[in-house]
Structures are given as structure tokens and as C-alpha cells.
Nucleic acid binder design. Structure first.
Length: 524
DNA sequence: AAAAAAG
């Protein structure tokens, strides 16, 4: 949390300095205002005097909010001067309220929960992109071509929010189309390629996810000459990349920060910054890197957005301090698993028991592709050597492998060459493998969030999936947390598990015996 | 407490 605070304060310091002039001007203006916010927030508002701040104000009185929060152009009209204007205003109020009702209905239907000032209406369909926002035909064509027929709930709400130039934090289930929800408005807002430098940045926690996001973005931009670049080692080596045309840059945080430090690129013109898997990016160790990137994106009118399937409160709190008048979009229940996944718990007494159970279940029925998660790189290697002798096409991926080995592992799994992919949490988030039939948690996940992301590799884009979580005696204290997630997404959980005492956090993860069929002489 | 993230 201390690291988080540093992020928070550095962001604020930056804002205050940068917008000192605006800040003092704005401060005078709202001397008599009813604001009860801290100085930090004032600094932010100073940066954007046209935008309103208090969320609750709109919730309580949307119509008043509408007028007050309008942009500077219309703020003069907001002042009631004569009767005619008053009646026009009441007409507008009525129409606005009707619209608000329609929006509420659509949101209810798709389990879209929002908070924030003056949130734009959700999309009824993709063609509204052109009627409401003048979307170009290439994009609509690509959407159709790629098989996107109906917008998913997160797309319905997050796309209009971002198109309205609003910042956004979004929480929607795994496999529900978050990437499209931020790439689509990004392409629309950027309009066309330019050589003015980097205009949009997408940060992802792993290289695999960054590569996937780059590929998806390119598919969506097909037919339009956007420069979409993945920040790779090769690209960094290729000399002066600051002059390379780049509309959208996709990177992992550390690599981007090191490029910034070496003055290899300039982020001062970045208009859009997306933090994908934001809760992961806000984790200790990564948050400092994010901080550096956020600071380097010094364009005052930048639009930042956060996306994830899990959004802990502390991340929201942290995010709120750096975001301006952000809209919060939650689909379904916050921090919940996809309801398309059939989740099961399997008890295996010991490490040997696990391996035995796995072999037996593979012998009974093998329904690839299967993704198998273990706790550590070491255990991934062990299990791989153990299974490599079996008659199964098995592969392994973890961060100790070379980049090309990692790429091959992903590609082979995508191509169906690998039946069972053994993995650490390196591919637990965001990775979109088409039609994974089964996710096996060979080792118990670290946290409910890790669980949600791991099993979320299956059950994507409306397909169903299966998730099996193996547990041992050592895992029992943490079983309740996972069982809660299961129960919340409609899976059956034995009552004895639900009766287990609640556990707030783990102090120690279980020390596991090494994976082996051989009699364990190394034990004790 | 591990994994990931630079070279």
C-alpha cells in the first residue's frame, strides 16, 4: 500500500505543477462552492475545470447534474434568465428523464452497473456506433467480419463512455470482450493514422497478453492504415524509435519504463492510456513502473481507463485519485467468475495423489485443449518432465523460458498441437485461447482473483467451459474463499466447505512436496 | 509468498 501511496502522490504532484495556473483560477471560481473534497482532488479539478466532481450530486439529481456538468460552451445557457428559457429547460429535462429511463432499462437487462456523472447511454447495437458517433465503415465492416454481432454488456457501456471522452474503470467477467471495449473507441477517437508521435498506449502485465492485444487491435484496424506497434526487444534495438510512426503502442510496464528512461520514446502526446488487467498492474512492484508511465504521459487532456475482471477496492481508491470524473462500469457482480464455467473441486490427499488422480482422469477421458496451472516455475518444470513420458502431447510455459520458447508454447497450444499445457500464472490473465475445454488447477490458486482469472481461460465469448480445482489437506483453510466464488457464479459447493471459517488473507502458501511418482526419500 | 516485469 505504501507503494500505492507513492503512485498517488506523484500523480498529484505532477497535476498541481502542470496545471498551477488553471488550478488557482478555478479555485477562485469555486470559492463559494459546496465542495467538501480534499486539496488533492481540487488539483485534479483544476486541471479540468469543465468537469464536475461529486458523484453523488448526479445520482441524487440527474437533471441538475446534467446542466451543471455541461461543458464550458453551454454553461452560460445553464443560467436561467427568463421564462422562455425556463420552459425550454423543463422540456429538455423531461426528454432527459425519458432517456435516463430507457438507459436504466437497457442497463438492467444486461446487468450493467454504473456510477459517475452524466454517464452516456449504453449501446443498443453496433450500428449505433455510426449513428451516434460517426463510426467509419471500415470498423463496422471489421466488427462484422470478425463475428461481433451484438455488443457484450461491457462493450455497450464502456464504448460510449470512452467515446464521450470520459475516463473509465471497468470490471467485467473474463472472456466478455474487454479488449474490444477499449480498442474500438480508441480507433474511433484516433480517427486516422498520423506521424505526430505515440497517441495511445496500452499496458498489459505480460508479454503474451501484450502480443495478443496488439494482434487483436490490428485485426480491428484492418483496412485503415493505423500504426499499431508492440514494444519488443527487437523494436527497441532498431535504433531511434521516437521518430517511428506509431498511433497505438502496446507494451509491458517495465519495458516501457526502461525505454522512457533511456529517452527512446516520447509519451507527451499520448491521448489515451489503457491499463489492462489493472489490478495486476497495481500490484506491488509493478505500480512504480505504472507510475513512471503515467507521469511520462504528460498530455493534460489524456483519457485513462482501467479494465479488469477483478477490481479490488484498494485499486479503485487508488485509481480515483488519479482519474478525472471517471465513470465506473461494473458488469454483473464485481469480482465474480464467468457463469459459463462448470466449476468443480476435487480432493487429492497428497502430491502423489494429485499426480495419480491426474493420470487417471486423463486415462478415462482426455478432452483437449486442457490448461493446467501450477504454483511455481519449478513445479511446472517438474510436472512437465513427469508427464512428458506419458502418451500425451504436453507442453509447458513459464517465465524461465526464452521468449521464443514462450511464443512457441502459446502458438502450439493455439494450433491444437499441444493437448495439455502446463503453466504458471504467466498466462492466467487475459489470454484468449479459443475453446479451452478444461482448466485444471493442479495447484490451488493464490487468491480468489487468481482463481477467477485462471478458470476464465475457458468459457469465453459465450462458450461453456469446465474448471477443476484440486486441493489437499493443506489447502483446506483457503477453500472457503474459492467456494464463495463458485457459489456466487451458480455452482454447487458442499455445505461443509461453506461452513469453514472465513479467512481474510493467507500468511503462508502451502509448502508443497515436489512432484514425483518416485518414493519420496527426500522428504523429512 | 510466488510470479511477472529490463538487460
Amino acid at each position: 500500500m505504501e507503494k500505492g501511496t507513492s503512485f498517488l502522490f506523484s500523480g498529484i504532484t505532477f497535476d498541481k505543477k502542470k496545471f498551477a495556473a488553471d488550478f488557482s483560477r478555478f479555485k477562485e471560481k469555486k470559492e463559494s462552492d459546496d465542495l467538501v473534497e480534499s486539496g488533492k482532488s481540487e488539483a485534479e479539478e483544476g486541471a479540468r475545470p469543465v468537469k464536475k466532481r461529486k458523484r453523488k450530486a448526479t445520482v441524487a439529481d440527474p437533471v441538475e447534474g446534467f446542466n451543471v456538468f455541461k461543458t464550458s460552451k453551454s454553461s452560460a445557457q445553464g443560467i436561467q434568465q427568463n421564462d422562455q428559457e425556463k420552459s425550454e429547460l423543463s422540456q429538455a429535462k423531461k426528454e432527459l428523464n425519458r432517456q435516463i429511463e430507457r438507459d436504466a432499462l437497457l442497463r438492467k437487462k444486461h446487468k450493467i452497473h454504473i456510477s459517475g456523472n452524466n454517464v452516456p447511454s449504453p449501446l443498443e447495437n453496433f450500428s449505433e456506433l455510426s449513428s451516434r458517433y460517426g463510426c467509419e465503415s471500415y470498423l463496422l465492416h471489421n466488427l462484422a467480419e470478425l463475428g461481433f454481432k451484438e455488443p457484450t454488456p461491457i462493450q455497450r457501456q464502456a464504448i460510449p463512455v470512452l467515446l464521450s471522452g470520459r475516463e473509465c474503470f471497468a470490471c467485467a467477467p473474463t472472456g466478455s470482450g474487454k479488449t474490444l471495449a477499449f480498442v474500438c473507441p480508441m480507433l474511433m477517437k484516433l480517427k486516422h493514422a498520423s506521424k505526430d508521435g505515440i497517441r495511445a498506449v496500452i499496458l498489459c502485465p505480460t508479454r503474451e497478453l501484450a502480443a495478443q492485444t496488439a494482434r487483436e487491435s490490428k485485426k480491428l484496424a484492418k483496412g485503415k492504415k493505423f500504426y499499431i506497434k508492440l514494444l519488443t526487444k527487437e523494436l527497441l534495438r532498431s535504433g531511434d524509435i521516437s521518430k517511428l510512426p506509431c498511433d497505438i503502442l502496446i507494451s509491458t510496464p517495465l519495458r516501457l519504463r526502461s525505454a522512457i528512461r533511456k529517452k527512446k520514446l516520447d509519451l507527451s502526446r499520448v491521448e489515451y492510456l489503457v491499463l489492462d488487467e489493472s489490478d495486476k498492474l497495481f500490484e506491488l512492484g509493478l505500480v512504480k513502473q505504472i507510475d513512471a508511465v503515467v507521469k511520462a504521459c504528460s498530455n493534460p487532456s489524456i483519457i485513462r481507463s482501467l479494465f479488469s475482471a477483478t477490481l479490488p477496492d484498494f485499486v479503485e481508491e487508488l485509481a480515483r485519485t488519479i482519474m478525472h470524473d471517471a465513470v465506473r462500469v461494473i458488469i454483473g457482480r464485481k469480482n465474480s467468475a464467468s457463469e459459463l464455467i462448470k466449476q468443480k473441486l476435487v480432493f487429492a490427499g497428497s502430491e502423489e495423489g494429485k499426480l495419480l488422480a491426474l493420470r487417471q482422469s486423463f486415462a478415462e477421458s482426455l478432452n483437449p485443449p486442457i490448461l493446467l496451472f501450477v504454483q511455481s516455475k519449478e513445479r511446472a518444470k517438474e510436472l512437465y518432465t513427469e508427464l512428458a513420458f506419458d502418451d500425451i502431447r504436453v507442453d509447458v510455459i513459464h517465465a524461465d523460458l526464452s521468449q521464443s520458447q514462450r511464443e512457441n508454447a502459446v502458438d502450439d497450444f493455439r494450433a491444437g498441437k499441444t493437448w495439455v499445457l502446463i503453466a504458471t500464472d504467466v498466462i492466467a490473465r487475459g489470454m484468449d485461447f479459443k475453446g479451452i475445454n478444461c482448466v485444471i488447477n493442479y495447484d490451488f490458486p493464490d487468491s480468489p482473483a487468481a482463481y477467477i482469472h485462471r478458470i476464465g481461460r475457458s468459457g469465453r465469448a459465450g462458450r461453456t467451459g469446465e474448471a477443476i480445482t484440486i486441493y489437499t489437506e493443506d489447502d483446506v483453510p483457503f477453500l472457503r474463499n474459492i467456494a464463495n466464488v463458485m457459489a456466487a457464479s451458480g455452482c454447487e459447493v458442499p455445505s461443509w466447505i461453506m461452513a469453514l471459517p472465513k479467512l481474510k488473507w493467507k500468511k503462508h502458501r502451502p509448502q508443497r512436496d515436489s512432484i514425483s511418482t518416485k518414493p519420496k526419500d527426500q522428504k523429512e
